[in-house]
Write a protein that binds this DNA or RNA. Structure first.
Length: 192
DNA sequence: CGCCAGATTGACT
DNA sequence: GTCAATCTGGCGG
């Protein structure tokens, strides 16, 4: 049977669980007739007002409102000159999103290479800012649902075997004590 | 309006 | 290892 897109049920759980479970799933970006795809190999969980590193820390604003709303949508924001790709994920009534930090390309690599000049393919998607350039993701996609195959960004289920690594979040000035970063051990597309 | 900070990256010592 | 480009939004005046 063909794999199906992860539905709202998948995203409507604790943010940390969703971050861990997104590892090894297939991220799909449809662009015109093309399909850019890759395995998610690195994620981070961000919560609401109690998380000093979260975009939602200072309360609900227009640009972060989607974090407070329905799970299973895109949350995209800017840092320096890059766009960050997040999936809204949290329990009912909570606030949170999962940052996609890196993926291993599996389809549409030529198109990704055309988006940016790099020497190695490992530089294509091995960081949150690189990944959004490769996938042509920007603020225009903010708030879009991802809960079925018709949406321009969605995630397919997979059942792969791999070891999960866990650490503190990267680049954060005020982190929480819990380790909220997850990555696929040994994968060369993991950032840094 | 001005100033500052940031979930980054790439260039350079 | 250091450092700054460059963009968006928060906040003070």
């Amino acid at each position: 049977m063909t794999p199906r897109a992860l539905t709202k049920r998948f995203y409507a759980r604790d943010t940390t669980e969703v971050a861990r479970d997104l590892l090894g799933k297939t991220l799909i970006r449809r662009l015109g007739g093309e399909s850019l795809e890759g395995l998610i190999v690195e994620t981070e969980a961000y919560y609401g007002v109690d998380d000093p590193a979260s975009r939602a820390h200072r309360g609900r604003k227009r640009y972060n409102a989607v974090m407070f709303e329905e799970p299973g949508r895109l949350f995209i924001y800017n840092v320096h000159r890059y766009w960050m790709l997040n999936f809204v994920a949290h329990e009912p009534g909570k606030v949170g999103a999962v940052l996609i930090r890196a993926m291993e390309p599996t389809e549409g690599v030529e198109r990704m290479r055309a988006s940016r000049l790099v020497n190695e393919d490992t530089d294509l998607t091995s960081g949150p800012g690189k990944l959004t350039i490769a996938l042509n993701v920007d603020r225009s996609l903010n708030g879009l649902p991802v809960t079925d195959e018709t949406h321009p960004v969605h995630v397919l289920d997979n059942h792969l075997n791999f070891e999960v690594g866990r650490s503190n979040r990267i680049g954060v000035t005020k982190d929480l004590s819990e380790k909220l970063r997850f990555y696929m051990k040994g994968n060369k597309f993991v950032s840094r």
